[in-house]
């Protein structure tokens, strides 16, 4: 059964975001989505990328209070679950000042939500039905511009540990709501010219040369490990 996108539910719950006894889930492609790849942060093969849309579909999202803490080292999380649901279809370019898109605000018991499970899943409908992640934009190198649409149908499940970032996230109290974040590291997909060429990320990344013909092309997420929680680790597996 295809569930309708939860965008309408998100709008209805919008005023609750940040309130006590709630947990708000965000998604981000960071500034690589909102600002694109530009010098010195070109793709590993020297392309500048400007995105008009980065459409991602997230589903089966569950926040967990895990004790002992989950290390992101396997597919299964043990703990007290808080179902957030999905599917959520969002454009990661159309983000707030922190490069984030709010997916849902859910009533939550007080506690520390220190693990998150979620999937990148094919969109049930919309402009890119059947695709889980789509990049639309223009690539530029040496004065040559290439309009592109890159899309994948891959469904990937993620089991993630604690959010790692400037601040510790996931605390819900009687006085304040908590936040969690799904973070897509787009440099894992395209690589970065300002990082060591022989580094693990650049060795695995696709770059853009393979797509230089432009137009609609499909790609695979296999082995790229794009999904994170901030800089925190996720165990991912193809569905």
């Amino acid at each position: 059964m295809i569930r309708p996108p939860a965008i309408a539910a998100l709008l209805a719950l919008g005023p609750m975001a940040g309130h006590a006894d709630t947990l708000t889930l965000f998604a981000t492609g960071e500034d690589l989505a909102t600002e694109g790849f530009s010098a010195p942060r070109l793709t590993r093969d020297g392309w500048a990328l400007a995105f008009t849309r980065v459409i991602a579909t997230f589903d089966d999202v569950t926040a967990w209070r895990a004790d002992p803490p989950f290390a992101g080292d396997g597919p299964d999380i043990a703990g007290r679950p808080l179902e957030i649901g999905g599917p959520f279809i969002v454009n990661l370019v159309d983000a707030d000042e922190d490069d984030r898109v709010a997916l849902a605000t859910t009533p939550a018991e007080a506690g520390f939500y220190n693990a998150l499970s979620w999937s990148l899943a094919p969109a049930p409908d919309g402009d890119f039905a059947g695709y889980s992640l789509v990049f639309e934009g223009v690539a530029t190198r040496d004065g040559v511009e290439v309009p592109f649409t890159l899309a994948t149908r891959d469904a990937v499940a993620h089991a993630c540990g604690e959010y790692v970032g400037d601040e510790r996230k996931g605390f819900v109290t009687a006085d304040a709501g908590g936040e969690l974040e799904i973070t897509l590291h787009l440099d894992h997909l395209f690589g970065r010219a300002d990082r060591p060429a022989d580094g693990a990320m650049n060795r695995e990344a696709l770059g853009f040369d393979a797509f230089a013909e432009g137009g609609l092309q499909e790609f695979s997420l296999s082995g790229l490990h794009v999904g994170h929680v901030g800089e925190g680790h996720c165990f991912d597996r193809a569905l």
């Binding site: 803490p69 290390a71 540990g161 604690e162 790692v164 970032g165 590291h185 440099d187 990082r195 901030g230 800089e231 925190g232 680790h233």
Partner: peptide, 8 residues
């Protein structure tokens, strides 16, 4: 944390 990678 370092260069987009983190551990706990």
């Amino acid at each position: 944390r370092q260069a987009g990678h983190g551990a706990v």
